[in-house]
Design a protein around this nucleic acid. Structure first.
Length: 337
DNA sequence: AAGACGGGGGA
DNA sequence: TCCCCAGTCTT
């Protein structure tokens, strides 16, 4: 991995933000693209927000991108490009919690702070046979204390790297390699046949179902899009004008709704196509919806937050994967891009 | 303390 | 489907 042995705190920071709740294989390309485009914090701080989001597009958890931009500006301007070199100041940066602060502290500055990520929770829970829930306040405290105790204070960076690699490669969530594991004779979970029961999590997520009906409105060569600014999924990304409802509706009903909102004027539009039903499963939401493509001779006069632009400009904006599915699908048939 | 926040991959 | 991933922020 390109960030192994890296000493530049900027690049370490970048890699750690990208890897939050993200597999190495998924984040690797994004990291390389970011380093190429923004080799230092000043370049990142100066970049237009739209361009940075476009580079982040598809990676998920877009608040990471927002915070990345904010912190880049802070370091570039307030700190004159000098990355903080102690745990407390690093942890105070937006987007950096206990894990990332420990990672940067130990990797970049060789400071003795133990990382506690998903790998560490799993390794410690199994090796020490700890059944305290890892998503409880008590569990976080217990595992963090143990991790700090175990830390090799002479080479904290090496130690942190090692335990995370061990968790990712050997002590995997499913089908761990216990047969060849060096802890085979001492691992509490292995000795008590508890490997598949640990670690313990107590909270379960319930999935919300949402229906998104998108209006793909075309006027001459332009299409209307808007920025999602609401405190909701995909904040900061772009989308088509949206009607969200709590259950599945037919196209007629949706179009009636569009007319009621004055987004369409009766008898002054042409229905081009209705997409098949698209679905996207997120961790905590199931999004289903359709794209209704309509052409108008005149843009609606009703006041709204729409931006009209041609395909080329649209392509420079970041969209949710739910919408990209549709855009890509169209590519084969009607070439939207 | 509990929820919210993406998307992809593996079982 | 469900679970997990080099977690953090908000309520």
């Amino acid at each position: 991995m390109p960030w192994k042995g890296e000493k530049d705190p900027y690049k370490i920071w970048l890699s750690e933000i990208i890897l939050q709740q993200t597999r190495v294989e998924q984040g690797l390309n994004y990291y390389n693209n970011f380093v190429k485009e923004f080799p230092n914090v000043h370049k990142l701080a100066k970049a237009p927000e739209t361009a940075v989001f476009k580079l982040w597009e598809g990676l998920g958890y877009y608040s990471r991108c927002r915070n990345l931009l904010f912190t880049a500006g802070y370091i570039s301007k307030e700190l004159k490009g000098h990355f903080p070199d102690n745990y407390d100041e690093i942890k105070a940066l937006k987007g950096i919690g206990p894990y990332t602060a420990a990672a940067i502290s130990s990797f970049a500055f060789n400071l003795p702070h133990a990382v506690v990520d998903g790998n560490v929770f799993r390794v410690l829970a199994r090796v020490f046979g700890i059944s305290t829930a890892i998503d409880s306040t008590e569990g976080k405290k217990e595992f963090t204390n143990l991790a700090e105790e175990l830390l090799d204070r002479k080479q904290p960076g090496m130690y942190n790297q090692a335990i995370m690699d061990f968790g990712a490669v050997i002590c995997k969530p499913a089908a761990p390699l216990c047969d060849t594991c060096v802890f085979k004779k001492s691992c509490d979970a292995f000795l008590h046949n508890q490997v598949n029961e640990l670690p313990v999590k107590e909270k379960k997520i319930n999935v919300r179902k949402r229906w998104f009906y998108y209006l793909v409105l075309e006027n001459k060569k332009e299409t209307a899009i808007r920025k999602r600014v609401e405190k909701d999924i995909w904040q900061g990304l772009y989308e088509f004008p949206l009607i969200e409802v709590g259950n599945e509706l037919d196209t007629k009903t949706i179009i009636r709704e569009l007319e009621k909102k004055k987004w369409l004027l009766k008898n002054a539009y042409e229905l081009i196509s209705v997409s098949p039903l698209f679905k996207q499963q997120l961790s905590h939401q199931l999004i289903a919806g359709q794209f209704i493509k309509i052409r108008v001779k005149n843009k609606p006069s009703i006041k709204n937050d729409w931006l009209w632009m041609e395909k080329e400009e649209m392509a420079a904006h970041a969209f949710p994967q739910f919408i990209n599915q549709y855009l890509r699908e169209k590519n084969g048939q009607q070439t939207l891009f």
